[in-house]
Design a protein around this nucleic acid. Sequence first.
DNA 1: TAACCGTGGTC
DNA 2: TGACCAAGGTT
Length: 365
Amino acid sequence: MAPVKEARIDLKPEDTAQMRAKLLDWYRRHLRDLPWRRTRDPYAIWVSEIMLQQTRVAAVVERYEQFLKNFPTVVALAHAAEADVLALWSGLGYYRRARMMHKAAKTVVEQFGGVMPASAAALRDLPGIGVYTSAAIASIAYGEPVAVVDGNVERVVQRLAGWGSESREGQAELNRKIADYATRLLDPTAPGDFNQAMMELGATMCLPKAPLCLACPLREHCKTQGEHPAPTRARMRSETAAYALVIRSQARYREILLEQRSEAETVMPGMWELPALADKEFDERHQRMAVRHAIMQVNYYVRIRTAFEDDAELLALPSGQHKWIRLRDVLGLPLTGLARKVLLRADIPELAAVPPMLPARASAG
DNA sequence: TAACCGTGGTC
DNA sequence: TGACCAAGGTT
């Protein structure tokens, strides 16, 4: 006798078999050629899954290979300095992900002899690896039959099953039902491909706003044909900010003034940024550039002012530690996303090409 | 459980 | 300009 909870899921065995076949067939013909789909190395897949958390595929594609070039194995990552790991993460956001993965790599080396845990349950014990990520790595790298539930799968299942806002149950109960459905639907003979197919379907067909139902391989099995309750919106606000680009020439090289955020900050602790201006207002003649920078619920409209070494009174340098950094070493530091963006757009010859490898340890430590 | 942690593209 | 959103985890 089936448990009550599962009995509410309307999925007949013959439907399941058809849906698996249609979805896998569609996936194998339409999958995007992404770098992490060319490997079964559990470490490389781990890196991709951490980078992909709440982050767009396009942003990850740019960083994934560079990260693996610098840290090709879990042992290499474990032996790296945290500042170097963060430097390669600069601009990706959610920096705790990088710190936790670095910490987990050390655990893998110290406790497991440098061999990645080979099951979802064991992976789950590492910092930064939760229910989703452990299932993703285990199914893709090891073929373990565990279903993933990410934002895509959640939406796809809700539409397939017709579970919408009319249900009175709590979010926790709904999440259980979704995980149950995904587990029932999972093709145990190809769990890695199947999981990726569900996510790919959500990412490219079963879109949040205007789903492409007419081209969907599962349309005949879908209860809603794309309906989905509109998610509640968070409020955004705008602010202005102003920073200084201060460059000085030394005998053989040029240096830029940067400031290191306190380790006690809750946001981007210990990372390097441009010095803030004491006064956000300044003459347009001194403006080097203007950029928008979205952080969480705030759109910052940022103006960057050109300044010089003896303009110190313009700068607000009360707490943070500031330092002159050689321009050629700057990309080796853990920069905030905003600092990185400004420097890369500032047309600075020393930064003309993003180096594929981290520079030798910068002098800013 | 809900708040918190970053970002760039796009409309 | 303002707002939305993307392969979550932690506390």
